[in-house]
Design a protein around this nucleic acid. Structure first.
Length: 468
RNA sequence: GGCCCCAUCGUCUAGUGGCCUAGGACACCACCCUCUCAAGGUGGCGGCACGGGUUCGAAUCCCGUUGGGGCUGCCA
């Protein structure tokens, strides 16, 4: 039991959940599931960042949306880094006692000044042998040993860093609080983490962390640095310019399964000719050794395509259920005009026509609006046909006593269309615009059937009147 | 600047020395189907960054060049 792998996901609470973090979490989760290991969640709140409970809840909720269930026996946490500060400081003191760390009183300005005069960048180890004591204004620095550090990485292979390119980094700030590098390592040791799977941006930190593991007398974990997610400019996805909040995609009607599937394929591909695969087979197949080495573009178009596939793969009942929150919260129509029964009838017509859930209201709004807005371009384009007035009038008259189903209604228009030597594609247009206000939408005759005879005739009559 | 990583269609990828005339997916285009729009079907466009090696044979191995990216904080 004690030798089963322990993975971890260690986000910092920033108020939203980054899609890059989502992918990292998913990789860790898949690995924990397949290996019978554990997924440890640790909130890295070391910064003075307010200890905001709702942000933590946001992380838990986002993970849960991704299928990472905090109630699962494979799940452990959340732990809070800030609560381990004493442990971090104790570890730092242990390093100091062993001569592996030392106090330094240089300020950032002084370091910069020394660097300028020496022509070298960064901190030069000035206080290494000054034997300073701790105290206000003094930071504790790690004494980087001579030699080289080889990081053995499951996706990168062996990466060698010359230690003389690594400066004596800070362990404890001048106010005594522990830095990320230290806290991260101490927590990982404490939590018996065996595999550190994270984004490649952390690779340059890894030799430092590995030295800390060793200096603290622990065996370093297995490292794996997965490629970063980038935007179309091939820059790391950033909160500032890119749409990175998982919550936003959720709100826009992206299905969790589509997001999970898509995220998993960014840097990795399941076997076979299709990328749309069930989570269970991804868990079965996913290997860090197979993860690609280059940055992956987060392509919303492809995500949307996956989402469309997942929407179409749902049963009708599942689709209706998935749509219900969107229908309930939309402002596309007054809430009291909505009818679940009507939507159920329209649902099969909508399911193949939307890529995200949020597109649903615009597709069915004409069913719930008393007077749907008529698009001017649509109106002008279709009503300028010389047959527009007569088709509206004749169709309106003919359906007054027709059998009320889509086949019957279609038959009526077809008869009229043939008699006038036209095409159904042309003659349905004025009717569609008069009914829905648009040139595109769900199949017309089914829509009329759902709308009902009375309302259909009312709108057609209004359309004729509008023609003047 | 320094350190490190990376390099297959526009994009995500398959490919681990001969099965490659480089496969799939997204996007795009065309056609079919069709009451609009979708969905679906069929087909098409399009790539191993470049230069040297190694080898009987290289997208696959090595070196270099070029080009991208990450890191370079008393942030995480």
């Amino acid at each position: 039991m004690s030798d089963s792998p322990r993975y971890r996901f260690a986000p910092s609470p920033t108020g939203f959940f980054h899609v890059g973090g989502a992918r990292t979490a998913l990789y860790n989760w898949a690995l924990a599931l397949r290996t019978g290991g554990t997924f440890v969640l640790r909130i890295e709140d070391t910064d003075e960042s307010r200890n905001s409970p709702e942000w933590t809840q946001g992380i838990i909720d986002a993970l849960s949306w991704l299928g990472i269930d905090s109630q699962s026996p494979r799940f452990e946490g959340p732990y809070f880094q800030s609560q381990n500060a004493e442990l971090h400081i104790a570890a730092a003191m242990k390093l100091h006692a062993a001569g592996k760390a030392y106090w330094c009183d240089l300020t950032a300005d002084q370091i910069q000044e020394r660097a300028k005069t020496s022509g070298k960048q960064g901190y030069d180890g000035y206080s290494r042998d000054r034997g300073l004591a701790g105290g206000p204004g003094h930071v504790l620095r790690f004494r980087v040993p001579e030699g080289a550090t080889i990081v053995s990485d499951l996706v990168r292979g062996e990466v060698e860093f010359a230690n003389d390119t690594i400066e004596d980094f800070v362990l404890l700030r001048s106010n005594g609080s522990p830095m990320f590098l230290l806290a991260n390592v101490v927590d990982d040791i404490e939590m018996r983490i065996t595999h550190v799977v994270r984004a490649e941006e952390h690779l340059p930190n890894t030799p430092k962390q590995q030295m800390l593991w060793e200096a603290l007398g622990a065996t370093p974990p297995i490292w794996a640095h997965v490629p970063v997610l980038v935007n179309e400019q091939r820059k790391k996805l950033s909160k500032r310019r890119d749409k990175v909040a998982l919550e936003q995609y959720r709100e826009e009607g992206i299905l969790p399964n589509a997001m999970i599937n898509y995220l998993m394929t960014l840097g990795w591909a399941p076997a076979g000719d299709t990328e749309i695969v069930h989570w269970s087979s991804m868990v079965e197949e996913f290997r860090l050794e197979d993860v690609n080495h280059s940055p992956a573009f987060f392509d919303i178009k492809k995500l949307s395509s996956f989402n469309g596939d997942y929407i179409r793969a749902m049963s009708l009942d599942e689709f209706i259920q998935a749509a219900s929150p969107v229908l309930a919260s939309t402002e596309a129509w007054p809430a009291d005009r909505f009818s679940a029964g009507v939507f159920v009838q329209a649902a099969p017509l909508v399911q193949t026509r939307v890529v995200t859930l949020s597109e649903i209201p615009a597709m069915v709004d004409f069913l719930f609006l008393e007077n749907p807005a008529i698009d001017d371009d649509a109106w002008n384009k279709t009503m300028s046909a010389d047959f527009a007035r007569t088709v509206l009038a004749d169709f309106t008259a003919a359906i007054a006593s027709a059998e009320w189903n889509h086949d019957s209604l279609k038959g009526i228009l077809e008869t009229w269309t043939e008699a006038n030597g036209l095409k159904l594609g042309k003659t349905q247009a004025p009717i569609r615009v008069a009914i829905t206000g648009r040139t595109v939408g769900p199949p017309l005759f089914e829509s009329l059937e759902i709308l009902g005879r009375e309302e259909t005739i009312r709108r057609l009559t209004a359309g004729i009147a509008r023609l003047g």
